[in-house]
Amino acid sequence: MVHRAELATLRTFLSIYRSGGVAKAAYGLGLSQPAVSLHLKNMEHLVGRPLFERSGRGIAPTEVGHVLAAQVRAHLDALEGVLGAYQATAEEHAAPLFLGAPSDLLWPHILQRLTPLVTEGLHVHCRIGFSPHLTEALLDGQLDLAVLTKIEHAPTRQLHLRHLCEEEFVLIGGVGERPYSHHDAGRRFIGYSGAMPMARRYFRQCWGAPPPTPVLTVADVRTLAAAAEAGTGLSVVPRYLVQSALDAGQLAILHTPQAPVVNSVHLAARIGREHLPRVRAVFDVVCPAA
């Protein structure tokens, strides 16, 4: 028979496995590091073998640790979801919801739709970030929900994903700029980050090549649009964020691809937590299932 204490140590083990460290697991669980270390020690005593080993500056799962995680994670996540579903709705709405998203997607796709829930008493705390960091925070238990613009290479088996929207990327520049050709050398580009995520997708689909190195990076699309309008450089951005400037003749589209360059955006929760009333309420309001 599995006792309550053993379930707690299993939950701690899984948190360490997902987060990759005792300190991160302690933060996500709201426990002290000594308590988490004790849980891990008890679990290794129960299993009879080490579950983690030192790796560089941190720890890595042993083969036994990988096997145990594969065996228990779906069951523990399901139990957490079932128990969460029985919590009182009033208590759930009183508890804060922690949400992560890129800054440019937060208001138009999320917050303006949450007004009814906030009016009913839901407290929402937002974190700005990129998909890899937001995914890690989801799995650590630091976030309840996250808007992910990239799920390639993400641990999708550990995530409950719901389609939020499609972004269409457009290549823009100032009014009067000549159309862009891939053979144009020396055209300045500006981007969201050094990795140029939007331009990278655009150039890969249109020309099968990497984008130019940016002369300016700023993690805010509206600032990129303003810089492009001022002639700082060309940029690839989501159409919906610059459509009004395009309509007003303040910006120009400098290239038209054979097929629209689009990116799927998802709203995500950790598997098992999608059943929590406050999380389910946000899913239903922001991206209701078809």
Rank of each mutant, 00 (worst) to 15 (best):
D140T: 09
Q142N: 14
A95T: 05
H75D: 13
V215H: 07
I271C: 15
P277A: 11
G28F: 05
Q250P: 05
E274I: 02
G121Y: 09
Q71N: 13
A225M: 05
D77E: 14
Q243F: 06
E120S: 10
L143K: 02
H39V: 00
A199V: 07
F130T: 10
A226E: 15
Q258N: 06
E168C: 00
V218Q: 08
L106K: 08
A269S: 05
M196R: 12
F13D: 04
R270G: 08
T256N: 12
F189G: 13
V265E: 01
H275D: 10
V72K: 11
L216G: 08
L46A: 06
Q33I: 04
E80G: 07
V170G: 04
D77Y: 10
L76W: 14
P50C: 12
T149K: 14
V218G: 07
P214D: 01
A245H: 05
R239D: 06
A227S: 06
A230N: 15
T149E: 09
Y240S: 14
A199R: 08
A88E: 06
T89N: 13
N42C: 06
V170E: 03
G208F: 02
F52R: 00
A219P: 12
V215M: 03
R273C: 11
G208L: 06
R239S: 03
G249N: 07
